[in-house]
């Protein structure tokens, strides 16, 4: 595989994570449990959309074809999305959304820290910028995890339920394929095995403080980075892409 093709695909993977999770968070708009959290969840969504756009713009440059960032977001099918499975899972209740955010933000933070050392200037620039925002998301979600776990029986049960349900998607965050091997060999990206150890440590630290327990690894599924998704992504895309599919090229 050529480095340039690998880099293009890698940008899509990073961008798709942001876009899909951003869309999920945007679904909370006007439905937040309290006004402050409605603002928080949609502000996080906005950051994620911004990060996705930066990466899609870069992917467009790499492709040197007549496509736009909007085409990448709105005109690709489910199998052409490379996001991890955890970000496409439906929102559930507030605890479920926050646990999903926490598990993902912990990963995204470590990923950004690693990519800051990439020898690809655009990627390291992206990571430097995104890290500041991602840290804020990590902080917001981990504070909530600790409150849930030490709050009422109800909040603790809901957080633990979410953790149990989502745990089987976490291995998928660290799956590497030909793209990773190519990019690692030229110093653009890094082994996700190294990030896995740090992720585990950071997650356990918060769970301990929250008095929540780490679930058993059970029914693990993987495939996001190879375009194999759970049934939820297609439904999400059909709603997100509806307007561009029905009215191609429609502008705001």
């Amino acid at each position: 595989m050529k480095t340039k093709d690998a880099l293009y695909n890698f940008c899509l993977r990073l961008a798709d994570n942001n876009l899909v999770l951003g869309q999920r968070m945007a679904e909370w708009c006007s439905r937040g449990p309290i006004l402050e959290e409605d603002l928080a969840l949609t502000n996080i969504s906005l950051d994620l959309f911004g990060q996705a756009e930066t990466l899609y713009e870069y992917a467009v440059l790499l492709k040197e074809a007549n496509i736009t960032a909007d085409d990448l977001a709105f005109l690709r099918n489910e199998r052409q999305f490379y996001n991890s499975l955890i970000v496409e899972q439906p929102n559930g209740d507030f605890a479920f959304t926050i646990v999903r955010q926490f598990l993902y933000s912990t990963f995204a933070r470590l990923m950004c820290e690693a990519l800051m050392n990439s020898n690809d200037e655009s990627l390291s620039g992206y990571a430097t910028k995104a890290l500041k925002e991602v840290k804020y998301h990590f902080r917001h979600s981990s504070e909530w995890i600790i409150r849930f776990g030490n709050g009422t029986e109800e909040s603790k049960n809901r957080a633990q339920f979410a953790l149990n349900e989502l745990w089987r998607f976490t291995d998928d965050l660290f799956v590497m394929n030909d793209i990773d091997h190519e990019l690692i060999s030229v110093g653009i990206s890094f082994s996700l095995d190294d990030i896995f150890g740090q992720w585990n440590f950071a997650v356990q630290e918060v769970l301990r403080e929250a008095n929540l327990f780490t679930p058993e690894r059970f029914n693990v599924i993987k495939g996001g980075s190879n375009g194999i998704h759970t049934e939820h992504l297609g439904h999400m895309l059909s709603e997100m892409q509806y307007l561009q599919r029905v009215h191609p090229g429609a502008k705001w």
């Binding site: 402050e36 959290e37 603002l39 928080a40 502000n43 996080i44 906005l46 950051d47 902080r139 917001h140």
Partner: peptide
């Protein structure tokens, strides 16, 4: 602090 997020990405309440 009321909320880490506000009316624009750059502000908190």
């Amino acid at each position: 602090l009321v909320s880490r997020f506000g009316s624009t990405p750059c502000k908190a309440l």
